[in-house]
Simulated assay, not measured.
Amino acid sequence: MIVGDTIKRTGEWTEAADTITLDESARHRRRMAMVSDGGIAFLLDLPEALLLVDGDAILLDDGRLVAVKAKPEQLLEIRGHDARHLLALAWQIGNRHLAAQLLDDAILIRRDDVVRSMLEGLGARVTETEAAFDPEGGAYEPSGHHHPAETARS
C-alpha cells in the first residue's frame, strides 16, 4: 500500500497529483486509510496527530503529493454587540467544552439548535453558514498548531 508520512505545509509545495477533501475531524489524524478525490488509496501514517488545513499536502512514498482541501461544514456564526459581549459569549461556549474557531469579530461553532437558542437568549446574533472549520487547539496541543486566518470563512 502507498504510504503518506510527511506533510508539506502551504507554500512548501507547488503541484499536486490529486486532492483529498476532508471535514475538520478527518483532517486531525495520525494514522488512517484514505482515498483521494481521484481514487488514490493510501495510508496516512504520521509520527503524531496533526491538524491538516486547506492548502497542506500529503507527500506519498511514491513521490506524488495529495493536496488537502477543507470540506465546508454546517456552522453557526456568533456575533456580539461589542467585544466585551463577544467575550462573554465565548466564555459560555467554552464552559460547554464546544470546539470553536475564533475570528476577529465572530466565533464559529458546529450547528447545534440548543446552543443556538441559549446564545440568542444571551443577545447574540447567530447566523447559519457553511465554511471550513478550523477550531482552536487545546491547551495541551503541541505549540506548532497550524491555524491560518485565511481559512476562516468561505
Results as ranks from 00 to 15, higher is better:
2 I>D: 01
4 G>W: 01
4 G>D: 03
8 K>M: 15
9 R>L: 12
10 T>V: 12
10 T>S: 13
10 T>E: 07
11 G>P: 14
15 E>H: 09
16 A>M: 08
17 A>P: 05
17 A>D: 10
18 D>N: 00
19 T>R: 09
19 T>I: 04
21 T>Y: 05
21 T>R: 10
22 L>T: 05
23 D>K: 06
23 D>Q: 10
24 E>C: 12
27 R>W: 14
29 R>C: 12
29 R>K: 12
31 R>W: 06
31 R>D: 06
34 M>A: 09
36 S>D: 00
38 G>F: 02
41 A>R: 05
44 L>F: 04
44 L>D: 01
45 D>G: 06
55 G>N: 10
55 G>L: 08
56 D>R: 06
56 D>Y: 09
60 L>E: 03
60 L>M: 07
61 D>G: 01
64 R>T: 04
65 L>K: 09
66 V>S: 05
67 A>Q: 07
70 A>W: 07
71 K>P: 11
71 K>I: 10
74 Q>H: 13
74 Q>Y: 06
75 L>S: 12
83 A>M: 00
84 R>Q: 00
86 L>H: 01
92 Q>E: 11
94 G>F: 11
95 N>Y: 13
97 H>D: 15
99 A>I: 13
107 I>C: 00
111 R>C: 01
113 D>K: 01
116 R>A: 08
117 S>A: 10
122 L>Y: 11
122 L>S: 08
128 E>S: 04
129 T>A: 10
130 E>Q: 11
131 A>W: 02
134 D>I: 10
138 G>I: 12
140 Y>H: 14
142 P>V: 08
144 G>L: 08
144 G>W: 12
144 G>N: 10
146 H>R: 14
150 E>A: 11
150 E>V: 11
152 A>I: 11
153 R>G: 01
154 S>P: 01
